[in-house]
Amino acid sequence: MSEATRSVPNEGSPVLEDLELADYLPAGDEQLYYVLHRAMGAPKGRVLLLGPFASERPHRYIPWVRWARFLSRRGFEAMRFDYRGCGESSGRFEDQDFFSWKDDARRCLDWLEARRPQAPTIIHGLGMGALLADKLFREGLGDALILWLPPKSGRDMLYQQLQLKLANDFVLKPAMKKTRDQYIADLEGGEPVEVEGYVWTRRLWDSASGFAVDEAADRGAIDGRPWTIQPLDPCAAHMFGGVGPNPLRKEGARRQMWLLNPDLSRTFDDVVSWVEATMCRDRGSPE
């Protein structure tokens, strides 16, 4: 039996759970929801977690929270938040775009960096969050950058997300079935498109064009600050990106069962090891 085939107990001991703080930051007229996973004692570093796009958020939530708790247990302070118009943060989704979500991330980063005692800041993005994280990092923010499953671009990600609309159309059989390109044409023509409960606008589509990760550029470091696109094993890729079928399905099993809480500690360990090694090297510490 592989390590990942067992479920993992809650990573937070009762003491660590007391270190979790949920609250709101003001963002103009809106409220930005965040959860801070504090570390015991002085943190080795502070990690800002930039989550995926709104319609992916509920499906990635459990492993994302587990990851934040893992970081806290390993001595890092982790902050995760909801973009305006999504989840617990206030605001209308249709009033937001990639730039407003980047502003949200910047607001959280400023708040996190103002905390004491000082510690290096790591920006970590998943999915759409990777695009926003990359942008912030290239603006000179943060001491290190980790990307998980970055889409090629903002538009490519939205194009992929339109699968949800097509899946609903397949079930509901509307009078006029459209392709993804036709929906994109609607957006470009200024017509809003409802996808999985969110109203997409031309503003969202237009803003997405300015966000992309160039994997080949600045390999390994930008201005001496390290960055990486961290590879995920099949189980983590499945949990964090919905990639492929259940990788733990037994051969010949009658039914497809859905994973909820597999052990992802191997991936988590790899990332923390990269951060620790990178930070120690940069600080010249023999630790």
Partner: peptide, 15 residues
């Protein structure tokens, strides 16, 4: 175990 609340969860959704 769900959302932000701490707690144990099983391996599979069906469970």
């Amino acid at each position: 175990g769900l959302g932000d609340s701490p707690g144990d969860l099983p391996l599979l959704r069906e469970t």
